[in-house]
Design a protein around this nucleic acid. Structure first.
Length: 804
RNA sequence: GCUCGAGUGGCGGAAUUGGCAGACGCCUUGGACUUAAAAUCCAAUGUCGGCAACGACGUACCGGUUCGAGUCCGGUCUCGAGCACCA
């Protein structure tokens, strides 16, 4: 009987569908497990082999949890608004809803073909009005609470197409489609005040079981720093330039100031700035650069001195020049800095290039005329008036006290985190449910009018001059103000794709609810998500946005937990066979359909888990796929050498117990590759033994089931077991039977392995030491040399340290 | 540039706490089976030297700590991810 994966997989997938095998139970007395994977963006390319890596991992955990007696929620849905669908729709003149629906059909077919244990009855789709009704509702609540506001923000503007562009559509400073120059242009945008939650987003990480690198990335992205806001008076005006600095200790060393090219004072003091033309030309150049081009340290600094403006250092009354430079960003701090070239690398480079004075105020480094000294730890203050002689690490606090006492500045906590730009001038997104009335300003739609559905149109292309395509639909745009009844216009911007994905995990708990985003009963039972796996690339944006929304909903009383996800893990990328990122242009894309056709879903799943360390990027290998296929074929072949009996045989008992322990622990730690290796080793032992009992075979099948669910159910049935593996229980092990009575240990001389020795597992160190020293080979090698000491590591080794 | 990772045989990788480096799989080579090939099974497989026993070297590079370092510390190089309008 050959292993006919095609037939077997079809058979079991049908069985699971017909029996609702993986439907989450309504029984709230059971312990629950909510496993979550990032729902995919259903692109036209179909499933990428990268998607199933994380899905298989959580599927394995979900399947094991079910066998361990948990009520498991493992749902799937579609994050379906977004740019690529819209662009495809524009290019091919097909409605994005049609494109989306086709893509979802294909994705769903592919996911079903891989045998994931999703509860398909809870499928959600962010583009479904019944879903985005609640996305809009959340926005209205944010608006009500003052957390949504409008402000001018720079956008990428294509000078050819006359439309706003996403960063991704800007390649090398030009428009991806038409090749025209892209400039930064101010546009009024809806913003969400995520910064109001910055501190809570940092603090609440402590109680979460996120992998460490994710926590670190989130903390650094939020970027909390402590420092001071200091006012530098502008000579000849009543104004002062406020700067934020994390190094108030170095204030005496501030020898010039730098404003960002977008700083409002440039307009305000236009008359005083004698070289305004030069300044304005510099600003135009800066507008063409993206932010990280501007802050690149390796690149030569540029800037222009503002002739006619002079600032005063508040601590020593010295006049210092004011410059503008694009390395200062208007979006961070106050958009202006005090420059201390002696103790900041970027300031040093700038001062060095433009011949500005460099004054040392922290001693302990080298010559500050040659290199900036940025270390605080061991420095002593010099040239700093009342701070002189103080340890640099104490000087910041002393300076802040001085500034506050004299009204020159205040202590200030600052965050790198910026508010969330929430509007897009695009068609394929949730309409923002606001109306703009000349009398009343922005007025929210009443809840009863939600969802505000996307209006029908033939033309999804962005409007000219950077407007949303919705702006052209005057019948839709012109409406009445819900407040005063007067003529008003609808907001024509839509929400970014991030909106729908910020709360989807809530909807899964109660997807058909018409009265609320999800019922409190369901939320209380299922939240928080117990285990959320996704790509490292979502660590800072999606993960932070959804934590922010969740906290906001918690404050509203709409959800019962402060945090959405208790545990967060991350998988590595799957690369092409040549070790490069998979892409059409590189021609190294692997299609899951081909692999399933040629080897089956079980092989595909097993290979994706065996491919390498789960959290590391790994290249695909067709040979590796074949190896896993061979492994499953051999497991199938064991039917021929199976003997009856539920017991474990003496030959294999210990190996089975060890494997159960290993696989159980490895799955919990996401060491899927070594779990598969352990199962392969057990198979090798069985092959050596020449036979396997039904009991041993059954244990092997349960362990392998989460990885390869179809073949294991099929064999389970064929060897005459009752029911299905899925309805049964996980296997257990006896710790006593995983330990060996005798172990081989190593004898080292000066750290080099020289001999091996078999000892009892319980023998005490003195006996082991004596046995090692008594070995003939050891005595020969020592040959009269002096033994300095002997180190015995129980169960591992004896190391004899000798001289001579 | 900033933040976070990673570098181990021909290849993917393994090595819970510092304790036999290379588990498991792939590739390759030899053998069995076959008219033959494929498939399958058995064996070898880090490098160098040696018939062998065995010896030396070996975890990106330089240095340090330790009886002992892939693992810890300091520095360097290379590669990958993210950088706020791709998702």
């Amino acid at each position: 009987m050959r292993y006919n994966y095609g037939e077997i997989e079809k058979k079991w997938q049908k069985f699971w569908d017909e029996n609702d095998t993986f439907k989450a139970r309504g029984d709230q007395s059971m312990p629950k497990f909510y496993g979550l994977v990032e729902f995919p963006y259903p692109s036209g390319h179909g499933l990428h082999v990268g998607h199933p890596r994380g899905y298989t991992a959580i599927d394995i955990i979900a399947r094991k949890k079910r066998l361990e007696g948990y009520n498991v929620l493992f749902p799937m849905g579609w994050d379906a608004f977004g740019l690529p669908t819209e662009n495809y729709a524009i290019a091919n003149k097909i409605h994005p809803a049609v494109v989306t629906s086709d893509n979802i059909k294909n994705f769903k077919r592919q996911l079903k073909m891989l045998g994931f244990s999703f509860d398909w009855s809870r499928e959600v789709n962010t583009t479904d009005p019944a879903y985005y009704k609640w996305t809009q509702w959340i926005f209205l609540k944010l608006f009500e609470r003052g957390l949504a506001y409008k402000t001018k923000m720079p956008i990428n503007f294509c000078t050819g197409c006359k439309v706003g562009l996403a960063n991704e559509e800007v390649v090398g400073g030009v428009c991806e489609r038409c090749g025209s120059e892209v400039v930064q242009r101010e546009k009024s945008q809806w913003m969400l005040k995520i910064t109001a939650y910055a501190q809570r987003l940092i603090d609440d990480l402590d109680g979460l079981d996120y992998i460490e690198k994710v926590k670190v990335q989130q903390r650094n992205w939020i970027g909390r720093s402590e420092g001071a806001e200091v006012k530098f008076a502008l000579r000849g005006t009543d104004d002062a330039v406020t700067v934020y600095t994390t190094r108030p200790d170095t204030l005496f060393g501030a020898t010039y100031m730098v404003l960002s090219p977008e700083h409002p004072y440039l307009e305000k003091y236009r008359e005083r700035i004698k070289n305004y033309d030069e300044v304005s030309e510099y600003r135009a150049r800066a507008a063409k650069k993206s932010e990280f081009e501007r802050t690149e340290i390796a690149k030569e600094k540029t800037g222009v001195a503002l002739e006619g403006l002079t600032a005063v250092n508040p601590v020593n009354g010295k006049e210092i020049p004011v410059w503008i430079s694009d390395y200062v960003l208007v979006t961070y701090g106050t958009g202006a800095i005090m420059a201390v070239p002696a103790h900041d690398t970027r300031d040093w480079e700038f001062a060095n290039k433009f011949g500005l004075p460099i004054i040392e105020v922290v001693s302990g480094g080298g010559d500050v005329q040659k290199e900036a000294y940025t270390d605080v730890a061991d420095g002593i203050m010099v040239n700093s008036g009342f701070l002189d002689g103080m340890a640099a690490k104490d000087a910041s606090a002393a300076m802040i006290r001085f500034l506050e006492e004299n009204g020159l500045g205040v202590k200030r906590v600052n965050y790198k985190l910026r508010d969330w730009v929430f509007s897009r001038q695009r068609y394929w997104g949730e309409p923002i449910p606001l109306v703009c009335c000349d009398k009343c300003g922005y007025v929210p739609l009443p809840e009863s009018e939600l969802p505000l559905t996307l209006p029908e149109t033939e033309d999804f292309a962005p409007g000219g001059d950077g407007e949303s395509p919705l702006a052209a639909l005057t019948d839709w745009v012109n409406t009445v103000c819900p407040k005063c009844g007067g003529a008003a216009r609808r907001e024509t911007d839509t929400m970014p794709q991030w909106a729908g994905s910020s709360w989807y995990f809530l909807r899964y708990t109660d997807p058909a609810n018409n009265d609320f985003l999800a019922g409190m009963d369901a939320l209380k039972y299922w939240l928080p998500v117990d285990w959320y796996n996704g790509g490292m690339e979502h660590t800072t944006l999606h993960l932070l946005y959804s934590r922010f929304w969740h906290k906001f909903l918690y404050d509203l009383g709409a959800v019962p937990t402060k945090e959405p996800y208790q545990k967060r893990t991350s998988h590595g990328m799957i690369l092409g066979e040549n070790g490069e990122k998979m892409s059409k242009s590189r021609g190294n894309v692997v299609n899951p359909d081909d692999i399933v056709r040629d080897f089956g879903a079980d092989t595909f799943r097993t290979y994706e888990m065996f491919i390498g360390a789960f959290d590391q990027a790994t290249p695909w290998s067709m040979q590796g796929v074949k190896g896993c296929f061979k492994f499953l074929e051999r497991v199938w072949g064991l039917q021929a050498i199976m003997t009856d009996g539920a017991e474990y045989s003496p030959a294999l008992e210990s190996a089975v117990h060890k494997t159960v322990k290993k696989v159980t622990e490895d799955i919990d730690r996401m060491k899927f590759n070594t779990a598969v290796a352990a199962l392969m080793s057990l198979l090798n032992e069985v092959t050596k033994a020449g036979s396997i009992t039904k009991g041993e075979y059954s244990a092997l099948l349960v362990l392998l089931n989460p990885f390869a669910p179809h073949i294991t159910e099929e064999i389970w049935q064929r060897i005459g077991n009752k029911g299905t593996i899925t309805d049964g229980a996980w296997v257990t092990f006896d710790p006593a039977k995983t330990r060996d009575g005798e172990i081989e240990i190593v004898v080292q001389i000066n750290g080099k392995v020289k001999d091996k020795l078999v000892v009892g597992a319980d023998e005490d160190t003195e006996t082991v030491k004596a046995k090692a020293l008594a070995r003939e080979k050891v005595r020969e090698l020592l040959d009269g040399g002096e033994i300095v000491k002997v180190i015995v590591i129980p169960g591992r080794l004896v190391n004899i340290v000798a001289r001579g």
